[in-house]
Nucleic acid binder design. Structure first.
Lengths: 170, 170
DNA sequence: CCTTGACTTGAACCATGGTTTAACTAGTAG
DNA sequence: CTACTAGTTAAACCATGGTTCAAGTCAAGG
């Protein structure tokens, strides 16, 4: 049950160069070497790599991940530290999800804005005069919120059907 | 209703240097200049900045955002393109949310793993022999899934109470 | 013996997204 | 007039997260 860097790279769907880079950065202190100096991964090392992948996807930096790995290497005395680190990370991931959800809501508003503009064949319908120029109506978010309350399904508000698109493009 | 770069920086909670950087990158082609060459932002420019901020938070690159801005500058003929760009972006944001949710689930599993280890005062309880060394039990995810099914509330499984922590640390 | 393929290293290179610096200009308060 | 503040630019600088390259080692197969 020993794996070469190539095996692991394939298994984890990562370039081998990235695994070497992580090793250099101290993320893989547990990896053994064979008599020729080649990295020899154990089964359990793959578990570590899964954790590293998770942390990467959570947006943690290499330095932060390394801190966690260092704690792991110190054994049972750091169990609580590791728990608390993950607890904090879980909280920031929840925040990230909330932020993305907020951005998604904004994108939906903008899709409504463009859907209605496409239907009117001009963005003018949302514009009002402002000083010398023009601007989007200041109450546009209000308008959207009202439309949102009245409709039963978000998709009614924001989706342009395929046949409508042909008309709009034609 | 004209704003200096400093006004806008404060309003948007961004360094002025970032606004200048965006301008250089072509993200702010709509910003006017006064007689002394200083940037003079209009009310509507702030709407653009909100869109830019949203796109940044969605993980779009400056090049991608610039493409959208370029479409905006071309007027009503690009309304459908802009709609479709946002539609695609909304889809990728949904994927990002799903990915983060998956990572959060993994973090919860790991919190359970460490909570139980803390209670046992050693990670050994999850270890089995493997070749010459040891590894986390291969069915650990099964074990977690079962525990998850049996319990009524995720927090029962993963949360360590404050008073428990004192015991564990003492 | 020789080639081939997979590995090793350190160093250089790259893209992204800014930030900082130096030198300058314009408007305002004293 | 002086000093100060807020703006301007181009160019240099920075951190992050890799990727690529050059030069070399090793084991296996023909």
């Amino acid at each position: 049950m020993r794996y070469s860097i190539g095996d692991v790279a394939e298994e984890m769907n990562l370039p081998a160069s990235t695994l070497r880079f992580y090793d250099r950065k101290g993320l893989l202190p547990f990896v053994d070497r064979d008599s020729a100096g080649r990295r020899s991964f154990k089964d359990n090392d793959l578990n570590f790599l899964q954790v590293i992948e998770c942390m990467k996807k959570c947006g943690m930096t290499i330095t932060e991940i390394r801190h966690f790995i260092d704690l792991c290497m110190q054994g049972d005395v750091t169990l609580m530290d590791r728990y608390e680190l993950l607890e904090k990370e879980a909280a920031t991931v929840k925040e990230q999800i909330q932020t993305l959800q907020d951005q998604l809501d904004f994108l939906h508003y903008k899709m409504w804005y463009f859907k209605t503009s496409v239907e009117a064949e001009t963005e003018d319908i949302h514009m009002v005069p402002s000083g010398d120029g023009r601007r989007v109506a200041p109450d546009i978010h209000e308008q959207y919120r009202e439309a949102l309350e009245k409709c039963h399904d978000l998709s009614e508000l924001i989706e342009i059907e395929r046949d409508e698109r042909k008309q709009a493009n034609g």
